[in-house]
Design a protein around this nucleic acid. Structure first.
Lengths: 233, 233
DNA sequence: CGCCGCCTTGACTCCCTTCAATGCGAGTGG
DNA sequence: CCACTCGCATTGAAGGGAGTCAAGGCGGCG
């Protein structure tokens, strides 16, 4: 479907995980199965047993946590090639849901970990994946803990733009609610921030799901914290 | 000095990292050196080269990022036994500073990674460490993105209490500013939340650096999101 | 005692949320 | 082709939680 995130892989940007080919070499391909899930369907739910871990073959998946009151925090979005659904315990820590129609490869968790640990090459690769995942999480902590709504949106738009390796007609695979849940905002605040950026001429939007960045420099300046925090309203 | 975090290690709670003994076995001890740093001193700064990664021998270390305007986001606090200062690139992503007087063991980064990857046992152990670190980061994202000040403080107090395995005279190794920077709040808000919990009788404090939890259940209830978000003021 | 760093409290402001209404595009059926 | 609907996105108005600014309070130490 949409090519979201794919460019990041071919470009070698963060997002490239352990390659399927590598896993094949290690004999994991035989144990893996492939699953198709439609947009909006849930792959697994927080708390349930985790016999498998997954890799996106096509489409985009989101992982999130739900609070008692129903609000959600989207931990991350995963695109083609990315691994997800694996943790130190055999229990899912998040709920995973397909944002677009998806194809995912499922690896039996225990065999996966055993195989990875046995191969120095895979170990190293997977360690790097985890460390860079941790890095991403840390960057998001800064965003959630210390940035204004406008800054968060700016950072997010820049990220999408980089992943798709273009400043023209960058695509939102996720809806406004998902963006809000990812950035720790409400859907209204997301809209208002986007409107604000449009009014400033920093971005343009040909539809709700596509934007361009005519003034990347200005966007980066806002994202970077600009002396004047560039608040909303 | 203070025993903060130590109980967590003996209790096997998250926090126990690759054991020094294991690293010794792998022949890394020979390459490691030990360093003493006084409270308040900086071990490394965001952006500089990262020839080493570290493990806390005694004391408590904080890792943080600084924004243009000087505000900080404390990514994590590390206690005895925990590894820190390692990422997928040979560059420090955070600034590390000693909160108390500390002793840390320094491992040459490249040798460390190579050795880990070569040993299935160490690989597996380190993978688990990273995954649980990622888990912690994700939990903090929920906290930063979706919780009120009172909830964040409650979660933090519970965490400290668990790590020190007591509900009596739990110790803050860090000052209020560090707590604020960790929880994405201001120092004043931290104080007010603590005062609020004291007024409710949920916690008591014999001094600014020690607290007890007479009503753990109530604290957990507040941390858990309580239908009524139990806002501040 | 008096200084100094850290902590606490108060008053006010403001960004973001909340609540509510409207807009808009896609799909459907008459 | 158009009316209708439904989900999603946008905009407006009002209120509140946390930030900001400012003034003490408290404990440790020379």
């Amino acid at each position: 479907m949409s090519a979201l995130f794919e460019p990041s892989l071919s470009a070698g940007l963060p997002g490239a995980d352990v390659l399927a080919a590598d896993l094949d070499d290690a004999g994991l391909a035989a144990t893996a199965c492939v699953k198709r899930i439609k947009a909006g369907e849930t792959l697994y739910v927080e708390g349930e047993a985790a016999p498998y871990c997954y890799q996106v073959v096509s489409g985009v998946v989101k992982e999130y946590n739900t609070l008692e009151d129903g609000r959600r925090q989207v931990a991350d979005f995963y695109g083609v090639g990315e691994l997800f659904g694996i943790s130190e315990v055999a229990e899912q820590l998040h709920t995973a849901e397909a944002i677009t129609n998806c194809v995912v490869r499922c690896y039996p968790r225990d065999a996966f970990i055993r195989t990875i640990a046995r191969s120095p090459r895979l170990s190293r690769h997977f360690l790097n994946t985890l460390m860079s995942r941790l890095h991403r999480a840390r960057e998001r902590m800064v965003m959630l803990g210390r940035m204004s709504a406008l800054q968060r949106i700016s950072v997010f738009l820049i990220r999408l733009s980089k992943e798709q390796a273009t400043r023209e007609d960058v695509h939102f695979a996720m809806n406004r609610q998902d963006i809000a849940d990812h950035l720790g905002l409400t859907i209204e605040t997301v809209c208002r921030a986007l409107t604000d950026l449009k009014k400033r001429g920093v971005i343009t939007m040909k539809s709700a799901r596509y934007f361009s960045i005519p003034k990347l420099h200005a966007l980066e300046h806002i994202a970077g914290g600009a002396q004047n925090p560039n608040r909303l309203h």
